[in-house]
Nucleic acid binder design. Sequence first.
DNA 1: AATGAATGAGTTTTCATTCAT
DNA 2: AATGAATGAAAACTCATTCAT
Lengths: 198, 198, 198, 198
Amino acid sequence: MTDLREPARARASSAKRQRLMRAAAEVVHRQGAERTTIADIARAAEVPVGNVYYYFKTKDELVAAALSEHARRLGLLTERLDRLPEPRERLKGLIEGWVGQRDLAARFGCPTGTLAAELGKRDEGGLDAEAGAVIRLLLGWVERQFREMGLPDPGDLAITLVGAYQGMSLLANALREPQIMEREGARLLAWLDALPGG
Amino acid sequence: MTDLREPARARASSAKRQRLMRAAAEVVHRQGAERTTIADIARAAEVPVGNVYYYFKTKDELVAAALSEHARRLGLLTERLDRLPEPRERLKGLIEGWVGQRDLAARFGCPTGTLAAELGKRDEGGLDAEAGAVIRLLLGWVERQFREMGLPDPGDLAITLVGAYQGMSLLANALREPQIMEREGARLLAWLDALPGG
Amino acid sequence: MTDLREPARARASSAKRQRLMRAAAEVVHRQGAERTTIADIARAAEVPVGNVYYYFKTKDELVAAALSEHARRLGLLTERLDRLPEPRERLKGLIEGWVGQRDLAARFGCPTGTLAAELGKRDEGGLDAEAGAVIRLLLGWVERQFREMGLPDPGDLAITLVGAYQGMSLLANALREPQIMEREGARLLAWLDALPGG
Amino acid sequence: MTDLREPARARASSAKRQRLMRAAAEVVHRQGAERTTIADIARAAEVPVGNVYYYFKTKDELVAAALSEHARRLGLLTERLDRLPEPRERLKGLIEGWVGQRDLAARFGCPTGTLAAELGKRDEGGLDAEAGAVIRLLLGWVERQFREMGLPDPGDLAITLVGAYQGMSLLANALREPQIMEREGARLLAWLDALPGG
DNA sequence: AATGAATGAGTTTTCATTCAT
DNA sequence: AATGAATGAAAACTCATTCAT
């Protein structure tokens, strides 16, 4: 009775599109892009298969949508972390976030990393580049924190930190051992603390 | 006409089996397990499609064969490295090997790591465990070197080193930047040198 | 605000209907009935897809509309030609009109002829008969000219002339050679001139 | 018991491929390329749908196969006609062949002509050119006969004759009147007889 | 009348696996 | 052991038509 007059159609459509994006992100994370069928995503989003194509013209567009959903979530996370006063604290918050996801990571890996690995095997479509772009978002944010700390080669440090995350996710996943995330997370926190800078 | 025919069947079969394993390793590395068809592997191995099933009863067995081919190669590498007198030198040799593969890694990632990531999304077949086992081989060897160096927590150190390798491979691949392998490789070498122990 | 709104609905509907008919004629000529989607026509007519069904209940009705649009255009042409005093001149005008369309014909064939050929393969819906009817309009008009010239078997002559047109259009189209229209057109003009009669 | 030792596989495969080509030619002639499904052709050839793709990788290849089947049949016809001593007699034989097919033509048009018209609406795939090539085969043969008769502009005469055939087929088809084929056939025979030359 | 969205049946295509020699 | 061929179950995608306002 309150917002009923807002454009119902646009709302519904938007909502469905969002549902599809989220379902795509989830299902693709769990099953991989190749093993995920449109029907899987449609089912997860509770949308009839035929209707999916009204919102996304091809399966690749849905995979791209999954990627931007991950980018969006990354944006939400960094936005929250940006409220912390110290860059070092922000980075530590990031790592704690990673460790907090250890069970999911040990089961399915990093959503963006595993997707990038899978898409990297293609030589058409350009989806691989889109996956790379999402990872670059993360790298960029991390680099900014290191720069703000006044450290030299913040780009390299970002590669090291994000690389460690990707590596520990992959190992935790391959060995199905969430504890790897904990141990490596602790090591990274200590490493951060040992770094000089503000 | 004398000894040439004796083990003809066995020999031929063995040779073909090997060709198929190697082809599987190569093609799966480049295309991913899911996007690789039996026909792709057969073509690469120059074996008629129908004949593949004489050697491997299912596609999964071929993927497993690709994994053991990677394990075999890892074995060859560590065997060679084991001839070095110092464990620290062996580890440095390992890292140099990784960096030497930077272009391949930047294009297709680590063969075992990307395969493990892909297979990790399955919940049937147990191939994921086999991928994990290959990675464990590497971890075990690395751990032995650290232990031989007399360092505490050699298992954790192995996770850190191998994790760094997986992470830098993934980033190099996702961003298509082989230099990442060089820079991170240099960092790892310096880290090794800075470690105490024999 | 006075008379502008009176027949607003009818007027608007009429205009849209006409736009749709014309778009259907054009697009179907270029793409063929089967390859043309309702959305194609809607887009060309700048009418929202859902709205098309207000004016035409089925796709077949739209194809029929394309046919009557062609009939209408034929009517305009013959009306204009009918102002010429001599039937022979009218027929020559007709041929000149065909030749004038040589580039379009070489690209897409005769609009009615190719549509008749396509619809002729159906055995339901009766659209094939409607296509035949449009061709009969042309044949009838041509026959009247020959009759007015006092020639025997004017119906057969009409078949010959219109058949020559359809044949040259098809060949020009199949070979993508507009010159065929010119050469055959010239031959037909000479043939007409050589015929006896007023 | 006679030819049993000929390579059974090759024979079977060849036979099936031929069956598919013939089925494609027939069904596409009757239904048009666009309205014909792979399943239609498979059914007509009594081949399981999935197996069709062993012989033809795409539907377009099947349509191309239909075209070359028509070319093959044209070759058989002209080969037979070439045994006639006089080029004029050969051409008359050609026309008689056309008239002999009047019922089929009145129902479905000229197989090659209608297919060319349909394919001419595409702008990708190059099938339109293949259709044109088949028509060129016919034009070339006809032109050779006119040339052998010592007539000037044999190419133009060929266009006129083949054009008349295509036109009369189209009209007979559009109006569903086989008699058109007869009347126009008779006219063409008379026209041929009236031409000078050997 | 108008319109974005929804629906579902149909079509092409792929491919692991099996079959028949 | 070897091999071309066969099979059938998916899967992506299309589109006429209908629906809900």
